[in-house]
Computed example of a mutant assay.
Amino acid sequence: MGLLDSLKSTFTSTGEASVPPAASFATREGVIYAPVNGVLVNLNEVPDETIASGMLGQGYGIEPITGTIYAPANGRIGATTVTNHSIGMITEDGLRVFIHVGLGTVEMNGKGFARFVEMGDVVKAGQPLISFDREAIKAAGHEDIVTVIVSELDRLKSIDHVGESGTLIGGNPLVKLGDPLLVAKTK
């Protein structure tokens, strides 16, 4: 491995984890699906002021019960982070989706995270994007809540929250990978 390859792998590391198998679920235009299994919480209940205020967009928090994030729609990866704790994508129909794992997890410098895609990759709904070690996140003193946010709301005619109809756990609905969360219509 040459110096350039070594530097590239340092700054674009996808981690050490093996790629989980893809999930399969039907998709429709304008729908963002749950990227992980867990308990759904309203965005305003996420204990982060910027996220809870809706400043970044609309969506949900999910208290995960598994440690892999899958593509919530067909699209293209628009942004990745060196620390592998968040990812941005643009769906085939132009929705901008931001997925963030945990609160304060940027401080972990990528420990406990692995990314399976690169910026510019075309992905299908259900394709693994990121894995994370829930116990490592908690041991580092952070929450492992996953946020799924649709941004650039000024480009949308409407956005409907449809993810609140699952089995209730402690008053909040349980969502499965591939359950519909948001339905957006562009202008």
Rank of each mutant, 00 (worst) to 15 (best):
L4Q: 11
L4Y: 06
L4A: 12
D5I: 00
S6I: 10
S9I: 01
F11H: 01
T12A: 11
T12Q: 14
T12H: 13
T14V: 10
P21H: 08
P21G: 12
F25C: 06
R28N: 14
V31F: 06
I32Y: 12
Y33W: 03
A34K: 02
A34F: 03
A34Y: 05
P35Q: 12
V36S: 07
N37I: 02
N37E: 15
G38I: 07
V39S: 08
L40F: 14
V41G: 06
L43H: 06
L43M: 09
N44V: 03
N44R: 12
P47I: 04
D48R: 11
E49S: 15
I51V: 15
A52D: 10
S53A: 12
G54E: 10
G57V: 11
Y60V: 15
G61W: 06
I62E: 04
E63W: 02
P64R: 02
P64G: 04
P64N: 05
I65K: 11
G67F: 05
G67T: 02
T68V: 15
T68N: 04
Y70N: 08
P72W: 07
A73V: 01
N74I: 02
R76G: 00
A79E: 13
T81K: 01
T81G: 01
H85Y: 10
S86F: 01
M89Q: 05
I90Y: 08
I90G: 06
T91N: 06
D93Y: 00
G94R: 07
L95D: 06
R96Q: 15
F98N: 10
G104R: 04
T105W: 11
T105E: 07
E107I: 00
N109S: 13
G110E: 09
K111R: 12
A114Y: 00
F116M: 07
E118M: 13
G120A: 15
G120F: 12
K124F: 04
A125P: 04
Q127W: 00
P128Y: 03
L129R: 07
L129I: 06
I130W: 01
S131F: 04
F132I: 09
D133C: 08
A136D: 08
I137W: 03
A140H: 05
H142T: 00
H142I: 00
D144K: 03
V146P: 09
V148N: 07
I149L: 10
E152K: 14
E152Y: 12
E152G: 14
D154I: 07
R155H: 12
L156I: 08
S158R: 11
I159Q: 05
D160T: 15
V162Q: 09
V162P: 10
G163A: 08
E164H: 09
G166A: 02
G166C: 05
I169Y: 11
G171H: 08
N172Y: 08
N172Q: 13
P173G: 03
P173Q: 09
L174E: 13
D179Q: 03
P180Q: 04
T186L: 14
T186P: 00
K187P: 00
K187T: 10
